[in-house]
Design a protein around this nucleic acid. Structure first.
Lengths: 345, 345
DNA sequence: CTGAAAGCGCTTACAG
DNA sequence: CTGAAAGCGCTTACAG
């Protein structure tokens, strides 16, 4: 067991309260005394015991708000698990986490969720934002006027005073897909891009990263599309069928978003599943299954759990220990998986 | 903040000590009283506060021993960082972690490290074991006679009473490499395997996984080797040069272990770097650099940090909360990386 | 079988 | 500017 504040107090010939004031820069202490105590603490190798700290501070009850959008999607459900995990941890350390699930995407719901959080007296908010002027202004209001730090996760909003962002670098994700596709095709032939929504910046960044990198590194590859399937299988299937008809020599498909079943059904129906190289995103839906059976060659994805867990913990560390986040942009790792690297369970 | 033991005591009209005895089945309490208290606790939705618990139990001082082998290698240094991280966490929760670094591989050092740990009064041990009879017997002795649970990590020993194993599934790792190589080569041609040491079971499992899966899924690919480079670059280079001479049409190289610089130097010297598909292991040494410049096409690796962190935390959770490990074999994730998915920092 | 009290390491009003 | 004391929620000897 380590050195305690009591031992330092004895060594310095002062009270424990004084040691506390010195070590935590609380003021109301003569600078020389503070300096001397800090010296002694350092010499004795003092490391504050988080338990004592947390227990005694649990009166204050740190409260963290979390706002999720599209909470009904499989991905967000995974994110939510991470949030719950963090909630338990924060809970067991004497804090509280308040979660607000917005089922779809709604500006007004987002704004009122923020307001609700404020009324509940949260000390910080982690949220999936929207790229809308009013939301951005509200974020700035919270940070500047109410002094409630706001962290964005999953998607980011530029030009706001949000504390930091936790999520994927979508452009880089597209580049990773390009690298894979380039190798799978041997660097030549036609490949198509099928995306989800035109207006979704994460998805369009993936497309852009893919196109850019193919253009740069694999000039022998011709990129078709993007076509948009709105994450619907029938639409994805229809697009794929038309592509196959128009480009009988198609070598690969990059799917930035969901619709994997539709694409693979179309491929199977004309006997090209496994032949046409397919790369898809996220470890949800039928993706693992299609990877196992060989219709999908690679999956690119992110750790959804971490995307829920980290934002809460970053805020907790900020509020509880005053630790600032390490970076403004905390990009989550980009995972590449083939059929042999599917995690158990 | 939740319900406390004091509130339950008041509601039940007993003392806090009695509530504690009831809720934690410590005996010395009338069964009816215990039952009634448990009822009340349940009705009130009592969830024990970990902080109070930990703080009050920190007198007992849970002590965990860690024994590392080959502690001088880059990989183990990363593992050590994970151990240190866990040590800090355990520390801040009132426990102690004792680390023993064995620079190379030594049976006698391993045995005496275990003995030392026991004298120091550790309550559990996490160790990198050796597949030797004496070590295995000692592990069983610790578990059975001394009641000190032993967890193995990085490499495992079969047929012992060790609590669980944390590390890579090496066979699966080789299969993942096979899947990549199969796709890179288009499923035909000659590929060579260069390994580190014949006697190292992790490495030979990788080789086996690679051979097995290529044989099964890519019958058009002919696997040469394995040759052994002893993780030395000059030797790796020499092997590669000879391979290139003997098999002028070589399509790929799978390197299970270090020696990447030697291999790539040989490839560069004959203008084949980037042409011959290369897959290597681990995110150490020059691997990232060679991946970036295109001499290596894929890296397969594991999160070394986690391999140090998890074992300590598993033991801590066991000792502190009585939580048994979830599985006997805790395989770490197998990461596939290309030049676009190199983590920052 | 049960209770009263002390203690874990820290923070925080409250006096002075 | 400094100290003495109470308190956070739990566990654990010690009495009875």
């Amino acid at each position: 067991m380590g050195v305690t504040i009591r031992q330092i107090a004895e060594a310095a010939g002062v009270s424990r309260g004084t040691v506390d004031r010195a070590l935590n820069n609380r003021g109301r202490i003569r600078p020389e005394v503070a300096e001397r105590i800090r010296r002694i603490a350092k010499d004795m190798g003092y490391r504050p015991n988080q338990l004592g700290r947390a227990l005694s501070m649990s009166k204050n009850n740190i409260k963290i708000g979390v706002i999720l959008q599209s909470a009904e999607t499989p991905f967000m459900k995974e994110v939510l698990k991470g949030v719950e995990e963090a909630r338990e941890e924060v809970d067991s350390l004497g804090g509280t986490v308040l979660v607000c699930k917005i089922p779809h995407i709604s500006q007004s719901d987002t704004l009122s969720a923020m307001e609700f959080m404020r009324e509940e007296g949260v000390s910080a908010i982690a949220m999936v934002p929207m790229d809308e002027k009013e939301v951005k202004e509200r974020i700035n209001l919270f940070v500047e006027e109410y002094h409630i730090p706001v962290l964005t996760f999953n998607s980011d909003v530029k030009d706001t005073r949000r504390l930091c962002f936790v999520g994927q670098n979508a452009f880089q994700c597209g580049r990773a897909a390009a690298g894979l596709m380039g190798e799978l095709t041997g660097g030549k032939g036609q490949v198509a891009v099928i995306s989800g929504y035109r207006a979704n910046t994460s998805l369009s960044d993936r497309v852009l990263g893919f196109q850019t990198e193919i253009g740069k590194k694999y000039p022998g590859v011709q990129v078709l599309g993007p076509e948009y399937c709105y994450e619907e299988n029938p639409k994805a299937r229809q697009i794929t069928e038309e592509l196959l008809k128009t480009y009988p020599d198609l070598k690969g498909i990059y799917l930035t978003s969901h619709g994997e079943e539709g694409v693979c059904t179309a491929l199977k129906n004309c006997g090209k599943a496994g032949k046409i190289k397919m790369i898809a995103n996220d470890f949800m839906g039928k993706n693992y299954q299609l990877l196992k059976e060989g219709s999908i060659h690679f999956l690119i994805g992110q750790d959804a759990r971490i995307q829920g867990y980290e934002p809460v913990m970053i805020l907790f560390r900020l509020l509880f220990r005053g630790e600032e986040p390490e970076r403004e942009l905390q990009y989550t790792e980009i995972y590449i998986r083939n059929e042999y690297t599917i995690p158990e369970v």
